[in-house]
Design a protein around this nucleic acid. Structure first.
Lengths: 107, 107
DNA sequence: ATGCTACGTCAGTTGACACTTACGTAAGTG
DNA sequence: CACTTACGTAAGTGTCAACTGACGTAGCAT
């Protein structure tokens, strides 16, 4: 399930949206005014972020308030950690490889 | 510079490639045989991963050996941590500046 | 009911991306 | 030298994602 999150975070505007609603709630329209794209575009971005589990939606009257969802990033972070940090000797091995590569390159 | 890394990781095959060369070196051709796509496709994936700083390339004769580069993920992980855990709002302000600049530029 | 506000959604266009085939190239082998 | 191996690169194609403009809808007030 990390794929939707990664795909959501690739878009620069979606990352900016996340930063905007990281520690304060904002309505869709308020978010849209901060960007140069049209309001429907922001609405679609919010849908992508919501389906990725990265934000929460709360309805208040005619408005919809959004906020970043911290748990959404947890899965992504553990996946990222597993991909590289698993096991202990990997960094050492990589360093040895680089040393060997430098040597063979005649540096 | 997190954008190239994110863009590289969105592709499922590139993530599989990374997992393959996480703790062992592999030649481009050997990697290609593990997938159903053609060898040039894998070569293009490797170029994307290399430009994102996620892998290292080492030439040995006519072959090119690839391996995951642990440091490549460090930047991505700190960015991910800052996006949610940073209590000071520095990243948020930066994003707002970007959004405002984007808007004022009329993009 | 009428009107207004703050949204989401649909339809269509454009640009980016992954893929294929064909070609070019550097390093080793007879 | 020619020949093969192990690659990267170029050109073209199909697909998907982001955008715009038009439309539909829920909530509130008059």
């Amino acid at each position: 399930m990390i794929e939707p999150a990664l795909r959501a975070l690739v878009e620069p505007r979606r990352r900016e949206i996340l930063a905007l609603i990281r520690d304060r709630e904002l309505a869709a329209g308020e978010i849209a005014t901060r960007f140069s794209v049209t309001r429907p575009a922001i609405s679609q971005h919010l849908a992508v972020l919501r389906e990725a589990g990265l934000i929460t939606e709360r309805r208040a009257g005619t408005r919809r308030l959004y906020r970043a969802r911290p748990e959404g990033a947890a899965e992504l972070r553990t996946w990222l950690a597993d991909l590289w940090d698993d096991g202990l000797g990997r960094l050492k091995d990589a360093a040895e490889d680089e040393a060997r590569a430098d040597q063979e390159a005649g540096r």
